[in-house]
Design a protein around this nucleic acid. Structure first.
Lengths: 246, 246
DNA sequence: AAAATAGTGTCTGTCAGACAGTATTCT
DNA sequence: AGAATACTGTCTGACAGACACTATTTT
């Protein structure tokens, strides 16, 4: 095996490496449903000579700050809160992307999370850089916009993962504010998947999974009020035994 | 928002960071089926004053070598080959674990992959450190052995992920050498899941998924020869529309 | 012939999808 | 009353699980 001939990273006694370290970043794909469309939050890269991809849209994220972040997930939570004001949401690790070429500044690895937040909870940052944070319709803008770094590819993976998990999980429940009705939840499923779902089957499926708790009736602006539900457990989505059909 | 008061990582023009970087490592959870049991490969941590967890069992892995590895996945492939001699296998990213406390040498983040390899392909490293690489039965030894770093927790996640994906994917096909018969494949499913599966339903399910290609008949040592199959596409597992029952 | 393993056929319960019907509100 | 939306009931086809059956090999 030729592996033995490779240089071996050496480590002296006191924690300072003698070899080059990759950069470590965290990025967050923030999903929400706005105006009947699945959207993601993007930020504009700062301009400046030393900046990579100046002015381009990118996923919110950045370097891990070892003095502040005690874990990767805490770092992702921090970045989410900085951009949206949302402190609690569904957060799941999507994966990591790392290599020599993805950042012009050098070998870097990014840990990517995706977040699902109800539109009503969002409070975009006010002030100078408000114009540099924006929501993008996943279907309309995303494919024709190319993002900084390898973020286009990461985003595509995130959308794929979300859509595929929606087929067999309760994930969309994290995109809608509580309490919500089953028709509201169904609408979110339909928006994310981009197709309509049968009402009766949907209700049976949701109720059988036993992850909803009845709350108050939702007295909408008109017509028959709907039962309002909350999640029994906000920490995890429920997995259904089958995919949705079609 | 208080985030503005946090220190901001600065970047001078020429690619050398002025802030502390986390260590970047890659670890691989290598699964195989040996003697009718689901096993994983562990390596013993080297002894020495400067070494963390000397003598303890750990997942194979180590620092990313920016001069050698061009991507994280390439790094994982390299580490897999170094330990097993296997150069091609199913490799999937499991996730990443990072934080201030997981490595006594400092803030570190590890990118974890899991690999599935057929026992017949394995060629453990010969020589001085052969005793420091060993297979462990997942059910028998893993829960009672505590590993270096946070590897026990990572391993538990890996086993959970593997078992849960086996319920609705063709992943076990990567644990058996081609060509293989349906009874052989079924045996692997049963070993990984730890329960028996109905023969007829299993065959229908596998054949309906259309990921197998007929090869030669397997003339075993005795009894009726079985049809041998190969994978239509070794690059990806197939997803079944339903979980296995029970 | 018997044993062992490979593979098939048939029945049945479950459940998603389709769709028609009922219920409750507002105007 | 009619419109709009919430919710339920019924039928049907697809399919997994159970299990009994047939097929092909070795000894």
């Amino acid at each position: 095996m030729s592996a033995r001939k490779l240089p071996v990273n050496k480590f002296p006694k006191q924690g300072r490496a003698t070899f080059r370290l990759p950069f470590t970043t965290v990025d967050v794909v923030i999903f929400s449903v706005l105006e009947d469309a699945l959207c993601i939050l993007l930020v504009r890269r700062p301009s400046g000579d030393a900046e990579p991809y100046p002015g381009k849209w990118a996923l919110p994220g950045g370097f891990v700050n070892v003095d502040v972040d005690i874990t990767l997930e805490a770092c992702a939570t921090r970045k989410l809160a900085e951009k949206t004001g949302v402190s609690t949401s569904y957060l799941e690790q999507l994966g990591s992307w790392g290599g020599a070429d993805r950042d012009p500044r050098g070998w870097s690895a990014t840990h990517v999370y995706f977040a699902l937040i109800p539109a009503e909870h969002i409070q975009l940052e006010r002030g100078a850089n408000a114009a540099d944070v924006s929501w993008f319709d996943v279907d309309k803008f995303v494919n024709e916009t190319d993002l900084a770094f390898d973020h286009s590819s990461i985003l595509a993976t995130a959308v794929e993962r979300l859509r595929s998990k929606v087929e067999y999980t309760s994930l969309p429940a994290f995109l809608v504010p509580e309490p919500f009705s089953l028709p509201q939840l169904q609408r979110v499923y339909e928006i994310v998947l981009g197709r309509s779902i049968d009402k009766s089957g949907f209700r049976t499926r949701m109720l059988a999974a036993d992850f909803l708790v009845e709350d108050v009736y939702l007295d909408g602006t008109s017509n028959r009020p709907a039962m309002g539900y909350r999640l029994r457990d906000r920490s995890m989505p429920v997995l259904f035994p089958r995919n949705l059909g079609r």
